[in-house]
Design a protein around this nucleic acid. Structure first.
Length: 524
RNA sequence: GGCGCAUUCGUCUAGCGGUUAGGACAUGGCCCUUUCAAGGCCAAAAUACGGGUUCGAUUCCCGUAUGCGCCA
């Protein structure tokens, strides 16, 4: 097909999040792109947890990352074992940076021994002053190389004196050019980089060095990451060269932006996968949405499942410019996937929300509470909290089916359907009146509905509909709303809902009539 | 401040020298309809600016502007 395709064979790619917070939607998207790329070309996708920052790294965040990537269906071939995170799947562990000190030490020593790196004893104050100086004369603030030529004995002396130090890279001055998988040619002049700090000490590398060593150790062939790393890439290339290692290919994905076009972050609202999961977004919707932020298949098709993405995906079709996170489109895609779900599955997914709103409860004690959002919940019988009536799952299924095409996110279900489970509905009097109707018209409609419904013995949706529709026609020619609207409001208390026939059928004769009577009282 | 990256409807995007600049979300209108959805139809809506190159630039090159990112 194209050049890129021909060259890619069994790639090894990775996502390397730090467990310092919940899985971010941007990280998830980068993971997804890596995953798709690896599957498209028959390679491996690796999850590497980067826990160098011991202060901020927490096991709970590692769990969150693992749980939510799996939930999305972005599964790794090598990485922490989800069943037992202490274990590493694959041949290239251990994945914990905190457990790889020995390896790092080897490389750092090598760099020092061969003269590619050196100890620097400059104090933060000194550095700050230099930085300010360079800034003041309009130059890039870079290290002036003061400790670069320190003799071996001086270094030894300083170390034995316990002087605080860092390890700097002797940045060679050259033009670095690399062929980005997405941006094509990128050129940087390394003389602008200065001698960067690559390690705090001989066993503690900083980000760029650690990434280089780990990617090499894991035989990563393609580093696909966010555009915010473009400026790290030339530095890493220099490190690869100093270490005598062939660098991998690099590809930099455009960033996701918030409404204000700055990098998507917490102040833009929900950014973690777990928040979206809790709100009731479906993983397939999130995947479909995320992939379209920076990629598109060159057709008018908007809906893609994971398998079809794997078939279609190509970095060639990735966008170069950043994309604003479009909440509305996500909502739309989610609604689409909700409508596609089979009703049993959808009901299962909605149950936790109904329980959380305390509308219903599981009957069996063995059934877990509180429910797990997005998890599996299989229950057969439920107790309606207010009335203590027991209902079958079919009953709930039926209710949810009325709302399937109205649901955008799962969490809306309780607000939409609460009147089925509550004893009384709260009705505002004026809401009962359709268009120009006065109290009397609304009252007449309700009375008439009550009479008709009271006569129905065979309480089925079809019967109810047939009878009511005839009356609706007669009640006021040309606008059935005068008859139907007050009825629907009497039953639901809501301006918007499913139709009155199906609602009446579900509510049962007794409750239906009772609610109609209640509503009539307001109009006397 | 330096360096880097980017720039097509409000948003996501198609386009890879000649198109009535296409699609989707959102918006507005109409149809269907008791309401809300869903669905159908229609409308409004974009090539940042300035130079080149070319018979011809949204497309290629160079500036400018703007935005974003990184460094410290």
């Amino acid at each position: 097909m194209d050049d890129l395709d021909l060259k890619i064979e069994s790639p090894r790619v990775r996502i390397a999040p730090s467990p310092t917070g919940a899985l971010h939607i941007g990280t998830a998207r980068t993971a997804l792109f890596n995953y798709l790329f690896s599957k498209r070309y028959g390679g491996k996708f690796i999850l590497r947890i980067e826990d160098t920052d011991l202060e901020r790294s927490k096991p709970q965040w590692e769990e969150d990352i693992i749980e939510n990537l799996r939930w999305l269906g972005v599964d790794w071939d090598e990485g922490p074992n989800p069943e037992n995170p202490k274990e590493y799947l694959g041949d290239f562990g251990p994945y914990r940076q905190s457990e790889r000190k020995k390896t790092y030490e080897e490389y750092i020593k090598k760099l020092i021994d061969q003269g590619s790196a050196y100890y620097c004893f400059c104090t933060p104050e000194e550095l700050e002053a230099k930085k300010n100086y360079f800034m003041s004369i309009g130059k890039a603030p870079q290290y002036d190389g003061k400790c670069r030529e320190l003799s071996g004995s001086e270094v030894k002396k300083n170390i034995s004196l316990g002087k605080p130090s860092a390890i700097r890279f002797k940045t060679p001055k050259k033009k670095i050019v690399f062929d980005d998988l997405i941006h094509k040619k990128i050129e940087v002049d390394s003389s602008l980089l200065g001698d960067m700090v690559i390690a705090k000490n001989t066993s503690l590398p900083l980000y760029n060095l650690a990434a280089v060593i780990d990617d090499y150790a894991m035989q990563i062939t393609h580093v696909i990451r966010g555009e915010d790393h473009i400026s790290n890439t030339p530095k890493q290339i220099l490190l690869y060269e100093a270490l005598g290692i062939e660098p991998p290919r690099f590809g930099h994905l455009p960033l996701i932006l918030g409404q204000d076009r700055s990098k998507l972050s917490k102040r833009h609202g929900a950014v973690s996968l777990k928040e979206y999961k809790k709100e009731g977004y479906l993983p397939e919707a999130l995947v479909n949405f995320m992939v379209f932020l920076g990629w598109n298949p060159d057709t008018d098709r908007e809906i893609f499942s994971m398998p079809s993405l794997i078939k279609e995906f190509s970095l060639e079709k990735c966008q170069k410019s950043a994309a604003v996170f479009n909440q509305n489109k996500l909502l739309w895609i989610n609604g689409f996937y909700v409508r596609q779900k089979n009703i049993k599955k959808l009901t299962e997914l909605c149950l936790p929300y109904l329980m959380e709103a305390n509308l219903i409860q599981p009957v069996l004690e063995s059934q877990k509470y509180p429910p797990v959002f997005g998890g599996e919940t299989i229950r057969q019988k439920f107790l309606i909290s207010e009335s203590q009536e027991t209902v079958d799952i079919d009953y709930i299924e039926q209710i949810i089916s009325f709302y399937q095409e109205r649901l955008k996110v799962l969490s809306e279900i309780s607000e939409l359907t609460d009147f089925f489970f509550k004893k009384n509905v709260i009705i505002q009097k004026d809401m009962l009146k359709w268009k120009t109707a006065d109290d009397k018209t609304a009252l007449d409609a309700l009375k008439s509905a009550e009479n008709i419904l009271s006569d129905i013995k065979d309480w089925t949706q079809e019967k109810i509909k047939d009878r009511l529709l005839i009356e609706a026609q007669n009640f006021k020619t040309g606008d059935r709303g005068y008859f139907l609207w007050p009825l629907r409001v009497a039953l639901t208390g809501k301006k918007a809902s499913a139709g009155p026939f199906e609602i009446a059928a579900m509510l049962g004769k007794e409750k239906t009539i009772a609610r109609i009577k209640e509503a009539q009282k307001m109009l006397f």
